[in-house]
Amino acid sequence: MRVCLLCGNCFLPPVDLVRLFSFQAFHEAVLCPHCQKLFQPLGPIRCPACGRSQQTAQLCRDCQRWEQIYDGDLLVNCSLYHYDQAMHDLMVQYKRYGDYQLAQVLASFLPPLPNWLLVPIPTSPEHQAKRGFDTIEAIFGNYALKPLLTKIPGQGAQGMRSRQERLEAEQGFVLADVNYPIYNRSISKILLLDDIYTTGRTLYHARDCLRRAFPSAKIKSFTICR
């Protein structure tokens, strides 16, 4: 018997034969079947760039904008779940209220990630100090992360801003310690990691920043929800 991390009810973890015999990273069930069903995976038809699920497989409006701004150099993103009410409530509980244990719930959603250089999107040092943990690193803690980006201090939280304010936000990242041994030319593939893809602004900024250090690397992103 286990105790569900969301509702507190006891449940028997399902025996999943496919998982048992696969080489995938095995996540222990932390949610009861009822709570697991609250979260909706994204549908099969998606925007080819940002991964938003939609009616047709064409570029979504956000990405058409990015296509213009970046002259066709779109960031390819992969997400797993809808950012719906259930996911929103989970994120509020985790990020705003600081329920650290929910990092395990979000981690249980993760697929196996490719063997690329994994760069988490940093949170502001002020918030990290207040919460006592880094919201992104806590979710992806089972992977070897390379925290190459630092947040410029003094900028407010994304969640507090309107959509327009987010789109107009200034570049918020700088490269961490430039003498880091990882800065060698052999790095060819980088995966940016974040929790939510909202407008794409944050991830495009992060890519801009990394491009300067790794001009020839292929950079994609992964977020839990879109």
């Binding site: 209220y97 600081g98 329920d99 650290y100 244990q101 006592g132 943990f133 806590a138």
Partner: peptide, 14 residues
């Protein structure tokens, strides 16, 4: 539940 600092916090009245 535990925070990374090994200090505990209350999950009920967050």
């Amino acid at each position: 539940a535990y925070l990374p600092s090994r200090k505990r916090y209350c999950r009920s009245c967050l």
